[in-house]
Design a binder for these strands. Structure first.
Lengths: 146, 146
DNA sequence: TCTGAAAAAATGTAAGA
DNA sequence: TCTTACATTTTTTCAGA
């Protein structure tokens, strides 16, 4: 990817609402030029979307946990990710190398909700789980170096 | 938190670049009313910022991994998160309950970079590490139910 | 792929209920 | 805390290099 596109992406990761006018000033391009580039980056799927970063606690999602998941029947075809996709508490699902097959990142309000969620995960996907509760998050969603 | 604020937050999580005009139409408020509410949500820290969601592969960060971290000397005061804060490859740092003290989410370009990163993490923070490599990510950064 | 121009739309501020 | 009004800024499109 081109240097100019890298700069634009980096700026939009740091501030997803930055105006094309300001992006132009920061990159030395005209407003229309950055605008065109951003559109292309979106079309190519380099930029997948934009989101507001939320303080989970203040919207009532005080508990975060990582759930490692392993199928009861390892010989069955693996459709675990699809089966779990409908569970909205799951923020992310990663297929991983190692003892377990997937790591899920989940957010809930209370320990009771986590308990219910674990039961749902196990029954929906036919998996055993190992749960790591997050106590605090010193930092998260930091912009990568491009 | 009020229902109207929840709606606004939910909309901005789904589309961080949504205009105040459209937010107004979606919530039944005037443009300036949503504008004021969004400003208050930002000031209160409910909305921490805005970001573009990037396809990591297309910017050359093809490897994601979770690194679980445990201090060599568990009796030493825990400043691990601060010590690691300077390492830009670390996207997130969570303090967790369980066998290990922290889980880091990192992004790098190659296995060699991961190897070098692990050495840096260990020496900077005085920790042992256990690394889980992500093979693929079925989904990530899904908007929560509010 | 860029620039510059111009119309259309959104933002930001203020007055008033 | 809301609305309406309005000046300012930004977005968006397009012709041309």
């Amino acid at each position: 990817m081109e240097q100019l596109d890298r700069e634009i992406v980096e700026l939009l990761v740091k501030d997803g609402r930055m105006s094309y006018t300001d992006l132009g000033k920061a990159t030395g391009l005209s407003t229309s030029a950055v605008h065109q580039r951003v559109r292309r980056l979106e079309q190519r799927g380099v930029i997948k979307g934009y989101t507001a970063l939320i303080d989970a606690e203040s919207v009532g999602l005080a508990m975060t946990a990582f759930i490692s998941v392993k199928p009861f029947d390892p010989s069955a075809p693996d459709d675990i990710a699809e089966r779990l996709a409908g569970i909205e508490e799951i923020e992310a699902c990663h297929s991983v190398a190692g003892d377990e097959n997937y790591i899920l990142k989940v957010r809930v309000a209370t320990p009771t909700e986590l308990e219910l969620l674990l039961a749902r995960v196990r029954s929906v996907a036919g998996v055993s789980t190992r749960t790591t509760v997050v106590l605090s998050t010193p930092y998260e969603a930091r912009p990568p170096r491009l």
